[in-house]
Amino acid sequence: MATPIQISLPSTGEEEWQATREPLMSGWLTQGPKVAEFERGFKARHKVRHALATSNCTTGLHLILVALGIGPGDEVIVPAFTWVATANVVVYCGATPVFADVDRATNNIDADDVRRKVTSRTKAVIAVHLFGLCADMDALRAALPENIPIVEDAACAAGASYKGGEAGALGIAAAFSFHPRKSITTGEGGMVTSNDDELVQTIDMLRNHGASVSEEQRHHGPRPYLLPDFNLLGFNYRMTDLQGAVGVVQLSKLDQFISERQKWAEYYREHLNGIPWLRLPIFPNTGTHAWQAFVTYVDPALAPKARNDIMEELKEAGIATRPGTHAVHMLGYYRERFGTSSDDCPGARDCDANTMAIPLHNRMEKADYDRVIQALRSF
């Protein structure tokens, strides 16, 4: 049997391995100079004033909401079709997630439904740039009162752009993910970006237990033996310097990785375009798609088999697939706690049932893409 084609594989190697030597040999393993270097590079690449590394994207989103003062009695609008963490961080704050539907064509939040969901208790909207395609930020901003901030869940969107602006600089703040399924990885890891100086100052303290200065600042200061002041109830949401060292190397490859993914996304479009039951993802003309994943839509009215049966046959052929993500309002916890129903967000419900991600990553070769194309065309 041919070698299985994975849905995703991180593109790491000798450079990343060697990058970990410096923190290992120096003894500085927690957040330190390599994390700071990664932060500087990331904010420069995404054209934003501040970048703060975190333990993962979820903790980054949590920090943003806490810094915005969101708590019990507040509502935060989130897309219903996303990874569960987008809604979870709202619950962590004691606030209520309000689910807005998504556009079946883009998988991103529907601005018209957001407008319908705004109440006097709405304190923020989280816009997810799903699979690397930026949400329609102009439409979303037009749907909201000026005082309601937009937070970007840019987990999938490192290197993406929208109408000349970089992901991470399109809302009041953003959180990115460096999970191995993302374009660049540090294993686990995240990054918060923002142009809001005051908000960033608060987030910086919150990620480090609420300390008034970081560990690196204290150890390099005149009196390292004195502990900092703690005026906030913070968290331990820091990134390690081992991860930061890997992140520096991965970031240097980001544009190359996106360029390669764009090339093969176009190849898929060219060779899969004639399959009537398979709708291909949007190729935007308003910016750069980061192509974290290539997520198709299996039309149940035209498909020769149910999506899950197609996925099973592809698995037997050695080709991994996955649903795009899930409809959070249909998950057990949210149904039981908030009384949500699948029909509340029909677009998200349909995307949950019919989306199918096919392999796209930087360790695939032409022969792999041709195998996937041949397998899909054989149905």
Rank of each mutant, 00 (worst) to 15 (best):
S194I: 03
N56D: 11
L242P: 06
P228L: 15
E22A: 14
E216V: 10
G164L: 08
F230A: 05
K34L: 02
P23C: 06
D370K: 01
A154L: 00
V114A: 00
Q18W: 12
E14A: 10
F338Y: 13
L233Y: 03
Y92L: 15
N285A: 12
A265K: 01
F235A: 09
V66A: 12
M1L: 15
Y333F: 15
A317Y: 02
S378R: 10
H220Q: 05
V151Y: 00
G164H: 03
K366H: 02
A290G: 06
E312H: 04
M239W: 13
I310Q: 11
W83P: 04
E37W: 02
A44K: 05
V295Y: 07
D103G: 06
A142D: 03
V90G: 07
S11T: 10
A367L: 01
P33Q: 11
G210M: 06
Q243H: 11
D255A: 12
M311F: 10
P323C: 05
A135K: 10
V249Y: 06
N208K: 05
A111E: 05
E260I: 14
Y162K: 06
H220P: 00
V76C: 03
L360F: 12
S11F: 14
G234Q: 12
E166V: 13
Q374D: 15
D352F: 04
A143P: 08
Q6K: 14
D138A: 12
E39M: 13
M25H: 15
T321G: 05
E270P: 02
M191W: 11
L242I: 14
